[in-house]
Structure formats: structure tokens, C-alpha cells
Simulated scan of single mutants.
Amino acid sequence: MFLKKTRGDREEAGLSLVRHEFIYQAIKEENQEHNYPISTLCKFGKVSRAAYYKWLHREIPESEAENLRIADEIERIHEESPDKGYRRIKDDLERYHNIKANDKRVLRICRKLDIKSTIKYSNNGCTRQAANPQYIAENILNREFTSGAPNEKWLTDVTEFKYYVGIIKHKLYLSAILDLYDRRIVSYIIRDSNNNALVFDTFDAAIEANPDAHPIFHSDRGFQYTNRAFHAKLEAAGMTQSMSRIAKCIDNGPMEGFWGIIKRERYYGKRFTSRDSVVEMIEEYIDYYNNKRLQRNLGVLTPLEKHESYLQAA
């Protein structure tokens, strides 16, 4: 009984050759350039001669050719950014490579190519709770992590990065402020010391860039944020201070999430051997994050695209 193949069947048939395509192509090139025996090359590639010749002389179906084209771009994306999973790869294909494919198709090709995103490591924050806090604010934000407009809700925190000079370990501290509407990094400061000046200067930079902003300003109970002088700065700027509860890092979830993103995508698994290399990595990543990193929860836009779309509509 003849059964007509569905589009899914044809696509899966095309995918079946994606993994071996590169092996077959290598065999063909080595044979043509160096005249190595096909049988020997097939043995090294762990494929049969019959399968190779079938590939060599076949007519390539349209669906298979499309899968191979998509697979080639997926490999390039993965080599450049191994942290990306299939969903982010799919979004990049559509936005930056003009290739439309649904999530399932990209996932199947990634599985055939054994492409997986890098492992997500747990983030261990470095903010020190104040032993004798001068000012404690209520958790006004109350995990309401959505916002109707830019500069309504800001989150902030400090995290640390390590680098080595010889066997000596050094630390750098990154303080940043994140807007909950468009998830953009509003401001950031990198310093060698985790102190009040680090946090105060980050706040001042945010105000300078957004002089009319009067958001809810949420943080954990780190010693910088419970400082009376910092609370006075917030009041002078017309902001409402909010703080996470003790031992409830989820109260500042999106900020903690950003630390996890930057460290998973650019920091974990690497050994930095100079201060400049860490600073350059952070600066380049935040520029990439704000301007090029597509986010599905923003409608497959970058943070600055989301921000600018609001300004244009206002």
C-alpha cells in the first residue's frame, strides 16, 4: 500500500543525512585533493562505501538541501556562541540570517549535530548583608517583575569576577542597575573594591543618563543599600526604596538572572589572566546584551529595541 510522505516525514528524511553530510564531504575532498582511497576514508569516517556513493550520486531533495543550509548556519552560530540553546539559535537565524524555521525543526537539527548550550552554573552572589543596617526598606516590589513603561522599576546588585596573575587570584566587582520594563542595563560600574563608592557611582551614572526617572529602586540588604547616605540619595532623586527579605534572593530574581546570563555565556569555564581581559569581557558583553541579544519575553527584541519602541509609541 502506497503511503504519501508528509512534510514532517520528508523533513526527517533530510535530517537523517545532516550528521553524515560533513563526513561525506570530507571524504570527497580528501579523495579529490590527495587521491586517498575511498574505502580507507570511509573506514576512518565510520561510514559504509555504499552509503557514501549513495550520497555522492543522489539528487538532493529540496527539504534536505534546506536542512543542510540551516545546519551550516547553526554550526556557525554555535561556534561563535556555544552558550545558545536551540530557541536562541532559532531567533538568531530569523533575525540575523534571514532563515525561517520553527523551534522543532531547529531542535531536531541541533540534536543531529549534537549541539547543546553550555551548562548553566549556579550563581553565588557576593553582596554582604549589613551587620548593623542603618536603614531597612519594605519589599515594596513584592516580586512584581513586570512594568508598563521604562524607568518605573529598577533592580540593582553587585557580583564578583576573578582573574589570575600567575598563581595570585584577584577580584573585580560589577555593580549594575536593570530596568524591569525592557531588561536593559541602565548603568554599571566595574571596580577593584566592593564598597559604598561602587554602588553610589552606579546610581549617579543611572541618574545622569535618566534625569527624569523616579522608579521603585529595589535591592537586597547589602551594606551599601542599607546605608543612610544611600537612602538619602534615593529620596533626593524622588525614588521609592524597596528591599528583598532576608535570605530571599528570588525577591531580586531578574537581577540575579542577569548575573547568571553573563557568567554562563562569557565567564564560566574560562581562566582570565589579566584585569583588562575581564573588564573588556564585561564591557563587550553588556553592549551585546543591550543591543544584540534577542529576548523572547520582550517579543524577540533586544532591550534597547524594546526601550526605543516604547519611546516611539509614546
Rank of each mutant, 00 (worst) to 15 (best):
K5F: 04
R7D: 14
G8S: 13
R10T: 04
E11F: 09
A13K: 13
V18R: 11
R19W: 04
E21V: 05
I27K: 00
N35L: 11
Y36F: 13
I38G: 01
I38S: 00
S39M: 12
L41F: 00
L41Q: 01
C42N: 06
K43P: 09
K46C: 05
V47N: 01
Y52V: 01
H57F: 15
E59W: 12
I60R: 15
E62S: 14
R69F: 15
I70N: 08
A71D: 13
I74D: 03
I74Y: 00
E75M: 09
D83C: 12
K84D: 08
G85K: 03
R87V: 02
I89R: 02
E94F: 02
E94L: 11
D103N: 06
K104D: 11
R105D: 03
L107I: 02
K112N: 09
K116P: 11
N123K: 15
C126G: 06
A131E: 14
A131Q: 11
Q134L: 08
E138H: 12
L141D: 03
N142R: 04
N142V: 04
R143S: 01
T146A: 02
P150M: 01
N151V: 01
K162D: 04
Y163K: 00
Y164N: 00
I167H: 03
H170T: 00
L172E: 11
A176D: 03
R183M: 10
I185L: 07
N195Q: 08
F203L: 12
D204F: 08
A206I: 05
D212A: 04
H214C: 11
D220M: 14
R221C: 12
G222V: 08
R228W: 07
F230A: 05
H231V: 10
K233W: 06
K233E: 09
E235V: 07
A236T: 08
M239K: 02
Q241H: 08
I246G: 05
C249K: 00
I250T: 09
D251V: 09
G253F: 06
P254A: 13
W259V: 13
I261A: 13
I261V: 14
R266L: 11
Y267H: 12
Y267Q: 12
K270T: 05
S277C: 15
Y285G: 03
K292R: 10
R296K: 08
H307A: 07
E308T: 09
